Amino acid sequence: MMTIPVHVPVLLQEVLDNLLLPPAARILDLTLGLGGHAEALLARADADSRYLGVDRDPEARALAAKRLGSDDRLSILACAYEDLWEDPQFLAWKAAQAPEGFDAILADLGVSTLQLRTPERGFSFRDEGPLDMRMDPDHGLSARDWIAEQTDESLADAIYQYGEERASRPIARAILRALQEGRLETTHDLAKAVYTVIPREPAKRKGHSDPATRTFQAIRIAVNGELDRLSASLEAAVSHLRPGGRLAVISFHSLEDRIVKQTLRRLAGIYDGPGRTAPVQLPKILKLIHAGGIAPSEAEAAANPPSRSARLRVAERIS
């Protein structure tokens, strides 16, 4: 029997407060995960509403189906949200169920707790597992195979860009040296390579992350192409909102949040590029809700530590 892991949806009340569901709502969940947000939103929605949950991870889809499968308002689609907008199954579902667009679209970005806590998926150095990190384990290169295709320069650039790691160059050299010497097969091997550059303190000080955290984040983002089409996907999502419909996006690190913030501001007619004092006319198709974003309450951050870095941004389509 498949056991559904304990899952605490991040910023759940804030999502419920900001995604306004009219009668017969049409809801698109770009990152269904274990279905925590979906369960709560479906509890708010009426009997004529329809909910489309999208996820690239087959294990997450199976667990969400077990959790929510008895609800005939729910459909689940196997797809990465970046590829959704031209997917024939999505287009067919939308034509049949939401021809005028969606009332609410939710994206809970980043890696899930399920993925982090499953050693076999290779996302975390807490428990040893194969160096994989793919959100869809049936497609694309594993982290080890991706690393094997990198040069010192390209790996360092990825670690610096996606992990904001200042020691990216010596870390990249240490990782590739471990690979060449046959010492890079598991998550612990990757962490050990990082520790040769930035030693791990025997007792990590409170508030200080493990030295391997930034490198793991960077390689995971690169392997899954998490930021490659994020802005374009948000623009596509907005194009599928009906007027008055809202988009809610939860990000978990500064790189994601910066892209989300800049994209939504641009679609709200706010120019964030160089030379801001120059007169620039941009189309305004969104209204920002809580322009600075919403962070978890102190109570949520204390009760659910993975939520501490989360930020929710919400925008409403106005045209």
Rank of each mutant, 00 (worst) to 15 (best):
A302I: 12
E128S: 15
I27D: 00
P211F: 03
L91D: 03
G225D: 10
E298M: 14
L84M: 08
S231P: 10
E298F: 08
A98Y: 00
E256A: 10
I285H: 06
Y162F: 13
A64S: 06
P306Y: 09
G225K: 07
L28I: 06
A96K: 09
G129S: 15
Q97G: 04
V280Q: 14
D272E: 15
L264H: 05
G35D: 14
D272K: 09
E256W: 02
T263K: 11
Q97N: 02
V6T: 14
G101Y: 02
I219Q: 15
F216M: 05
H37I: 05
L286D: 08
L21Q: 06
K192S: 09
D108N: 03
A62Y: 01
Q262C: 07
K204S: 04
F90L: 10
A295P: 02
R246F: 10
A212Y: 06
I219K: 12
L32N: 07
Y195S: 01
F125C: 03
L141A: 14
H188E: 01
M2P: 15
R265F: 08
D132W: 01
L11V: 10
R313Y: 05
R265H: 06
P137K: 12
P296H: 13
A310C: 08
R205M: 02
R214F: 00
Q281Y: 12
R134Y: 03
E300R: 06
I318C: 15
D83T: 14
L91I: 10
R121A: 05
Y51K: 11
Q217M: 01
W85T: 06
R214H: 00
D48I: 15
L286T: 12
I27C: 00
R44Y: 02
A65S: 03
G275H: 00
